[in-house]
């Protein structure tokens, strides 16, 4: 329970004079789901980008499973067990639903440089990909081109690709954004299921307070790039800082 999987120390990034993430020090432990909240522009997604490596840090460090990964490329972090789903849907549009997930499984199995076999003949990878699609209820759409999917289904596929990656650190960036009311529960139930697996840690950027209250073990609050609150949901929601940051509106409703 107490094993730290991911840790940021004084993590900072500046864009010109603007400090987008400001000395954030935080540890994420196995078996824990941490919700990251904060108003728009608080630096939540930038913090994610620093952790997963899309942006280089100006100062501070990121450690994954005890190893310093601050200077590592995105692909290597991913291979070490850091998986990320994106806020804006980020898929392979001209490829089929199945192929999108199959590519993830293939990456996981390290088969990318296999040049002389027929991809379709790796039945085991296809089966594994199909199993993941079934979990997000996309099995029936396996042969559809991704660009033809509805927005909600693209969001589900986004989540499916992260699950297929089977990482130790899951990073969800507003997984239910833009989903209809009856689509969101499929994804939220899945995240709840992942929580039971105690070797993993889950980071979740989310706006919807009901979702956070249901899933999170812990909330951290970012404001103007700095970490201003960290603790169990009830405690954080009730704290003065948060009331101030959010102008007392959204959170007070819970």
């Amino acid at each position: 329970m107490t094993q730290t999987l991911l840790e940021t120390t004084d993590l900072t990034v500046r864009f010109g004079g603007h400090v987008a993430v400001d000395h954030v020090t935080c540890a994420f432990r196995a078996g824990e789901l941490t919700a990251i909240v904060g108003p728009n522009g608080a630096g939540k997604t930038t913090y994610f980008n620093l952790i997963s490596g899309q942006i280089g840090a100006s100062a501070g460090s990121v450690r994954l499973l005890g190893q310093d990964i601050t200077r590592m490329g995105v692909a290597r972090r991913c291979a070490m067990g850091l998986g990320r789903a994106f806020q804006l849907t980020n898929l392979f549009p001209a490829l089929s639903v199945l192929e999108n997930v199959r590519l993830v499984i293939q990456a996981r199995r390290g088969k990318g440089f296999n040049l002389f076999s027929i991809a379709a003949s790796h039945v085991e990878m296809t089966t594994a990909a199909l199993a993941v699609l079934e979990r997000v209820k996309l099995g029936a759409l396996r042969d559809q081109k991704v660009s033809e999917l509805s927005h909600g289904n693209q969001r589900k596929l986004e989540v499916a690709m992260l699950i297929a990656l089977d990482p130790q650190v899951y990073m969800f960036d507003e997984p239910t954004a833009g989903m209809s009311v009856d689509e969101a529960p499929v994804v939220l139930d899945l995240i709840a299921e992942l929580k039971h697996d105690s070797d993993r840690t889950i980071l979740l950027v989310e706006h919807k307070m009901d979702v956070i209250a249901k899933l999170a073990d812990r909330i951290i609050v970012l404001h103007n790039g700095a970490l201003v609150a960290d603790g169990p949901p009830a405690e954080v929601i009730a704290s003065d800082v948060v009331q101030k940051v959010y102008m007392g509106r959204e959170i007070a409703d819970v």
């Binding site: 899309q54 980020n90 001209a94 199959r102 990318g112 440089f113 990656l165």
Partner: peptide, 21 residues
């Protein structure tokens, strides 16, 4: 081949290809 599929994924979205490893 599996390699060819990776190439196509890079053509489609190199950012995501990198992010899945």
């Amino acid at each position: 081949s599996p390699f060819g599929r990776v190439l196509q994924s890079i053509r489609e979205n190199d950012f995501r290809s990198e992010a899945i490893g």
